[in-house]
C-alpha cells in the first residue's frame, strides 16, 4: 500500500452529533434528492409534457359537452361560480397532479431507497431517521412550483388561458397545503415500507381525491353525503382556495377559513406521519424488514 491513512495510537471517531450537524445532514439529503432528480431525464416529461397533457383530456371533454356555441356550459358555470372554466379545470387538475406525484415521490421515498439497496447504509448513520423522510419533501415541493409555472405558461400559449390571480393568496394556499399533503405522504411512506407493495394504496387514494375533491366539477353536483366527506379531505380545501386565489383574485381574508382548516389538518397528518413512522421503524428493526424488497 503506497499511501496510508492518518490515524493516532488511539482512534477516536470524527463523528460529532450536534443540532447543526443534523441540519447539515438534512441539507445533504435534500442535495442528494436534487441530484437524483436532475440526473434522471424523466423530469423533462414531468415539467413540460404532463402539465398540458393531463388537463387537456378534461378540457376537450368539456368542449364536447358544451356544444359548438358553448350553450351547454352555462349551467356548469353557474354552479362553479366562475366563467373561466378552462382555469377552473387547470387549477383542479394541477392540485390533483400535486397530490398524485406527492404520493409517488414522497410516499415511495423510503421504498425507493429500500429497492435501490441504500436504505440500510443511510440508517446505519447517526442522522435522525425522520430526516430521511422529511428530506424528500423540499425538492418535490420546488419541482411542483416549477410544474405550476409550466402549466400557466403552456396554457397561456396553447389555450390563451388568462388568470385573475392574487399571487400572494396563491402562495399562501401553497404554503398552507404543504403540511397536510406532506403529513399524508409521510404516513403513506411508512405504510409502504412495511407493506412493500403500494400500488393499490396509491390508486385508492388518488381515486378518492379524483372523485370527492371536485377536480373538474363543483362539489354541488355530488350527493350531500359525498360533499360531507369531501370537506374532510385536504385536497378539496386546497382546490377551492386555489381557485378563488387564481381565478377570482381572492384576498387572504376570503380564503382564510380554508387555510386555517388546512393548517389544522396539516398538524394532524404530520403528527400521524411521525407516529406511524416511529412505529414502523421499530417494527422493521424487530422483524428485519429493512433489507427486504
Amino acid at each position: 500500500m503506497e499511501t496510508t491513512l492518518s490515524s493516532g495510537t488511539h482512534l477516536t471517531s470524527l463523528s460529532r452529533t450536534t443540532g447543526l450537524a443534523q441540519l447539515r445532514a438534512f441539507g445533504a439529503i435534500i442535495w442528494r434528492e436534487y441530484l437524483h432528480f436532475v440526473r434522471y431525464p424523466t423530469w423533462v416529461i414531468a415539467f413540460i409534457i404532463w402539465p398540458i397533457l393531463f388537463p387537456a383530456t378534461y378540457i376537450f371533454s368539456s368542449f364536447a359537452l358544451a356544444g359548438p356555441s358553448g350553450v351547454g356550459v352555462t349551467r356548469f358555470l353557474e354552479v362553479a361560480g366562475t366563467d373561466n372554466f378552462l382555469g377552473y379545470i387547470v387549477v383542479g387538475t394541477s392540485v390533483w397532479m400535486w397530490a398524485n406525484t406527492l404520493l409517488w415521490n414522497v410516499g415511495f421515498a423510503l421504498r425507493g431507497e429500500q429497492m435501490r439497496g441504500t436504505l440500510e447504509s443511510n440508517w446505519m448513520t447517526p442522522t435522525s431517521r425522520f430526516l430521511f423522510l422529511l428530506g424528500s419533501g423540499p425538492v418535490h415541493a420546488v419541482s411542483m412550483l416549477m410544474f405550476f409555472l409550466f402549466t400557466v405558461v403552456e396554457f397561456r400559449i396553447f389555450f390563451h388561458l388568462t388568470f385573475n390571480a392574487n399571487l400572494f393568496s396563491l402562495l399562501a394556499v401553497f404554503l398552507a397545503a404543504l403540511p397536510a399533503l406532506y403529513g399524508l405522504g409521510f404516513t403513506f411512506a411508512s405504510l409502504v415500507i412495511t407493506a412493500r407493495e403500494a400500488n393499490a394504496f396509491v390508486f385508492l387514494v388518488r381515486g378518492i381525491v379524483m372523485i370527492f375533491c371536485g377536480i373538474t366539477y363543483p362539489l354541488a353536483v355530488m350527493p350531500p353525503w359525498m360533499q360531507a366527506v369531501a370537506e374532510w379531505l385536504p385536497p378539496t380545501l386546497i382546490i377551492r382556495a386555489a381557485r378563488l386565489a387564481a381565478l377570482n383574485h381572492a384576498s387572504l381574508e376570503v380564503i382564510a377559513p380554508d387555510l386555517v382548516r388546512l393548517l389544522a389538518y396539516g398538524a394532524f397528518w404530520l403528527a400521524l406521519g411521525y407516529l406511524t413512522f416511529s412505529q414502523i421503524e421499530r417494527r422493521a428493526r424487530l422483524k428485519g424488514a429493512l433489507n427486504q424488497y
Binding site: 463523528s15 447539515r24 445532514a25 445533504a28 442528494r32 441504500t118 448513520t125 447517526p126
Partner: peptide
C-alpha cells in the same frame, strides 16, 4: 448497491460524511 450509482464517488462520500456528522 449500498451507495448511489447516480452520484459520483466524491459526491457519495460528501453525502455520507454529512450523515456521519
Amino acid at each position: 448497491r449500498s451507495i448511489y450509482w447516480k452520484l459520483t464517488g466524491r459526491e457519495n462520500l460528501e453525502y455520507f460524511a454529512a450523515l456521519y456528522h
